[in-house]
Design a binder for these strands. Structure first.
Length: 932
RNA sequence: GCCCGGGUGGUGGAACUGGUAGACACGCAGGACUUAAAAUCCUGUUCGCCGAAAAAGCGAGUGCGGGUUCGAUUCCCGCCCCGGGCACCA
């Protein structure tokens, strides 16, 4: 098909990547090459990138790494015959846009829109195969209509612990009407118990309050960091030493009404579900640590002096019951008031006041031991001895019962507390306790432990629980560290809650009233009394017989279900049709960073489970397989200035002077060599700079660190694409190393990949000879090279070993060049093999080879194994495990044939020194080892 | 402190199930082509010893010290270092 080559000018015989890439990007767009239909007749593959927040800073070369990997994988699967869903969109609600609006007066909707445009234009240059007709934006009312709808689904549901699934709240109401809540204890407040008759006697307000304790999305009172001077609520990391980070104003705990998701009800299923998904072990580990399941017992202790009053502690080590030297309750514990005595009252109150002045994060970070004696005692259930009850912040109100039994000989924190306050320590583990440290062992034999004496601790756990259960003072209890997720923010730029408060009753909007649009608002200052900015819009807040909820949803609301919307993005009747979700199902490959390990991934897993329970989708884990890409670090360049001067010294000589180190923009440096002229112009300070060079060259120092503007080490993908082309950029990002590892960016290294691209091009075109493809048959050696690389790219892409796939392509191109192979039949297949990695050049050559459609509609070549079969192999021959020579041998030789050949070999004879070998190990197709 | 990753040439990395350590690149050195440069191509490049050099040969070598094995980057035990996550969770 020389016709196709004929119109090419000499200039285009060169690898003109800029023209090629522009041309194909336009064609892809104009012909909607990447739009995907929900074609249920074809096998599906769903490949998804983690939802990006469109930040104003733009992309650096580290950001697209995961996108390139998922793009390569998507294209590869399409070549293998799959209908591939590969969408992209924006998690466009969020705090940065709101903060930007407050500081610059640009409305969040506008700045977000601009950021998305920048983001998109950067992505487009890299040549991704996203189906942009499916783009979603969480801040778009047509999207958040369904976020609100799902919120209402959660609001109208409760979790049936017997069935371990969500059910409609209406079913709970009918249960209450027939049998009260005897079978379904209240997750929000275990003290709530009622019969059917009592339920019916409740007024609407009481019924509403009870139901709120069951709902999966519920409203409750939570503590926030309240800063009176700023009139706003602060996040934990905005509070330092009890004052606000901005301005240093005092911050106090304030109880505010908040929304929560009852994710704790799903703890068990979130844990179990990990067994069914293909995530890395470390990712599963992080999630299960976060969920934090533990087995133990709740034990009642009688308080002395208050007849009949007792309190519960939670412990995982009931076997240590005789080692209890004191009790500790959280400062927020409800018994604090009743435990304090006239002598202790002042100290207790001072302590509580001090604790309240600090954020939870600070309390957790606190290393000092603090606490106060409550003034009261409880009695030991077996010995009847009095045990002092202390109050300390190291016990958290939200975990277990908010009270512990302290066993200083076995628990590090209890030990330090006892030492600090001079509380005597009982030893129940003999020599395992040395008096200088607690020992948390379970292997000791118990002493001083009455009926447990002589038992191994791990066995005594069961014995002690059984005994205490029998006595009616304890029961087994499984606990989870995880807490319910706070689901409201006192902010503007988020989804409004579809809730109207009528008195104290939260009334949901009806579906027909959705979306409840976020009103335009000029002034984004906080509302009165810690409320969000929406409280400043009374005309929006006030509705007939009620007030709208003024909180908005947090960032993770929209991102918890977006993968479902991509399946059916324009559906105005449903969040996603069941037909679409049944077809596309789970995300087959989810690509993103580890920073979302416990937040986003757990929330979206919970939403998926709830939607599954309620019958809206047919699967309960959203992501079948997770690939975490590593980060690309920056390679900074440093110059050394002699202190107090404008004289700079080359890095090899810097130790001879007293110097200060400065970061220099990496674009001014070639490798390590500084362009001193440009450096002088870079900043006014350096106009008069002088340089002490080494042999006329000024070299910089280097350091690997985070890619960041302040280190001047940011490399913009736009520049790389402009200089080398998108295909080279994609290939190079993949070539850098294993996708899941962190690695430094080295712009210098991209040259090698670009050389490879040109070498590949020259299999087809030569600047002088023009089009080189011929109809001559390829040699067997060439076919072997082709099928070897086809097989390698296939296997390596499937297991995400993109770097080795690229090196395989390099080897193939090197071999085919050496073989002077220009066979059309062979090169057509090679173009398909490379297409997923370098899509633009593949399209160009596919077209030049005479094809009219996209190369993506070709099929990946079937491997013809017979070209790969070897008849002989060069075996390494080792003497005692050390390779001494090699022998080219037929692959099908027997052990005895091998032995006789090996024994005649001169090198082997030399090493044997006349002795006969003990044995000869022959592993077919691997190696030969002569053991002396 | 606990948990999870990871330590291989000057650099990024390869070696997939225990079988020729260093593929493929970068960089560097030398050479060809060129008036010159760019581009391209060729040769060499783990370290040490031996040698004028090349070839050949020998020794060491995958963070350190042991072990299992005919054979260990790979498996086991004990350390060291780097990166990440969690951190009073009873």
């Amino acid at each position: 098909m020389r016709i196709f080559a004929a119109h090419l000018t000499a200039r285009t015989m060169e690898y003109a990547f800029r023209e090629i890439e522009r041309k194909w990007q336009e064609r892809w767009r104009d012909n909607a090459v990447y739009s995907v239909r929900n074609d249920v007749s074809r096998p599906k593959c769903y490949v998804l990138d983690m939802f990006p927040y469109p930040s104003g800073a733009g992309l650096h070369v580290g950001h697209p790494l995961g996108y390139i990997a998922s793009d390569v994988y998507s294209r590869y699967k399409r070549l293998k015959g799959f209908n591939v869903l590969h969408p992209m969109g924006y998690d466009s609600f969020g705090l940065p846009a709101e903060q930007y609006a407050i500081e610059h007066g640009i409305p969040p909707a506008i700045s977000t829109h601009n950021n998305i445009d920048t983001f998109r234009s950067q992505l487009d240059k890299i040549g991704f195969c996203y189906d942009w007709t499916r783009e979603v934006r969480t801040s778009d009312p047509s999207y958040y209509k369904w976020t609100q709808w799902i919120f209402l689904q959660l609001f109208e549901s409760w979790f049936d612990r017997h069935r371990q699934q969500a059910r409609p709240i209406a079913e709970l109401i009918s249960i209450f009407e027939t049998e009260g809540n005897q079978q379904h204890g209240c997750p929000g407040d275990t003290a709530i118990r009622f019969t059917a008759e009592e339920w019916k006697s409740f007024d609407p307000q009481q019924q509403s309050d009870v139901l709120m304790h069951y709902r999966l999305a519920y409203s409750g009172v939570g503590e926030v960091n309240w800063c009176e001077a700023l009139g706003t609520v602060l996040a934990n990391d905005e509070v330092i030493n009890g004052v606000s980070e901005r301005g240093g104003h005092p911050v106090v705990k304030k109880k505010l009404r908040q929304w929560y998701l009852r994710i704790t009800e799903y703890a068990e299923r979130l844990l179990k579900g990990l067994e069914t998904v293909d995530f890395s072990d470390s990712m599963k580990e992080m999630q299960s640590n976060w969920i934090g399941k533990s087995y133990g017992a709740e034990i009642d202790f009688e308080i002395m002096g208050i007849t009949g009053r007792s309190f519960k502690v939670y412990t995982t080590r009931p076997d240590t019951i005789f080692g209890v030297d004191f009790m500790v309750i959280a400062p927020e514990h409800e018994l604090v008031e009743s435990l304090k005595t006239s002598e202790s009252a002042q100290a207790v109150e001072d302590y509580i006041a001090n604790v309240n002045s600090r954020s939870e994060r600070e309390r957790m970070a606190e290393k000092k031991i603090t606490g106060v004696f409550s003034g009261s005692y409880c009695s030991h259930p077996f010995t009847g001895q009095p045990i002092p009850i202390w109050i300390s912040e190291y016990v958290l109100a939200g975990y277990g019962t908010g009270a512990i039994m302290a066993v200083p000989c076995g628990d590090e924190r209890d030990f330090r507390f006892a030492k600090h306050f001079g509380i005597p320590i009982t030893n129940i583990i003999g020599a395992f306790y040395d008096g200088t440290d607690a020992n948390p062992t379970k292997e000791a034999r118990l002493e001083n432990s009455d009926f447990l004496n002589g038992l191994l601790m791990k066995d005594a756990i069961e014995v002690s629980i059984a005994r205490m259960e029998q006595m009616g003072i304890a029961h087994r209890q499984t606990n989870y560290k995880m807490r319910d997720a706070a689901f409201s923010r006192q902010r503007y730029w988020g989804e409004p809650f579809p809730i109207v408060w009528k008195g104290e009753v939260a009334v949901p909007l009806s579906v027909s009233e959705l979306p409840l649009e976020l009103p335009q608002l000029e002034n984004l200052k906080p509302g009165p009394e810690g409320q969000g900015p929406l409280a400043n819009l009374p005309e929006w807040v006030t509705v007939a017989d009620g007030n709208r909820e003024v909180n908005t949803m947090p960032g993770y609301a929209g991102s918890s279900w977006y993968f479902l919307r991509y399946m059916d993005p324009h559906n105005e009747q449903e969040f996603c049709s069941r037909t679409a979700s049944d077809y596309w199902g789970q995300v087959d490959l989810y690509v993103g960073g580890t920073e979302h390990a416990v937040g986003h991934l757990l929330y979206s897993r919970m939403w998926t489970k709830a939607l599954f329970d309620l019958g809206h989708i047919g699967f309960d884990e959203p992501f079948k397989r997770l690939l975490n890409q590593g980060k690309i670090g920056g390679d900074s360049r440093l110059v050394y200035r002699i202190r107090g001067t404008q004289q700079f010294v080359s890095s090899g000589l810097k130790d001879q002077y007293e110097t200060d180190e400065l970061h220099v923009d990496v674009s001014l440096v070639d490798g390590f060599v500084l362009d001193t002229q440009r450096f002088k112009q870079w900043k006014p300070d350096f106009n008069d700079a002088t340089f002490i060079t080494e042999n006329g060259v000024f070299t910089c120092g280097g350091r690997l660190e985070k890619m960041s503007k302040r280190y001047f080490n940011v490399v913009n993908p736009d520049e790389i694409v402009e200089k080398y082309g998108a295909d080279t950029f994609r290939m190079y990002e993949m070539f850098l190393g294993p996708i899941d590892q962190d690695k430094p960016w080295d712009t210098k290294g991209i040259e090698g990949v670009h050389r490879f691209m040109r070498k590949f091009w020259r299999l087809f075109y030569d600047t002088e000879k023009g089009w080189r493809v011929t109809d001559a048959p390829a040699t067997d050696a060439s076919w072997k090279s082709l099928y070897k690389v086809a097989k390698k790219v296939e296997e390596d892409t499937a297991r995400f070993s993109f770097n080795t796939a690229v090196s395989g392509l390099m080897i193939a191109v090197n071999e085919l060049t050496d073989q002077d192979c220009h066979s059309r039949e062979l090169l057509e297949k090679l173009v398909v093999v490379i297409a997923a990695y370098a899509p633009h050049v593949a399209e160009e050559l596919w077209s030049a080879l005479g094809h009219s459609g996209s190369v993506l509609d070709a099929s990946y070549p079937a491997i013809e194994e017979h070209y790969l079969v070897e008849s002989s192999k060069e075996y390494p021959v080792a003497i005692n495990g050390k390779t001494r020579t090699t022998l080219l041998l037929d692959i099908n030789l027997s052990q005895s044939e091998i032995e006789s050949i090996v024994m005649q070999d001169a090198v082997v004879i030399k090493w044997l020194e006349g002795k006969s070998p003990k044995k000869i190990i022959y592993v077919k197709n691997k190696m030969i080892n002569v053991v002396m």
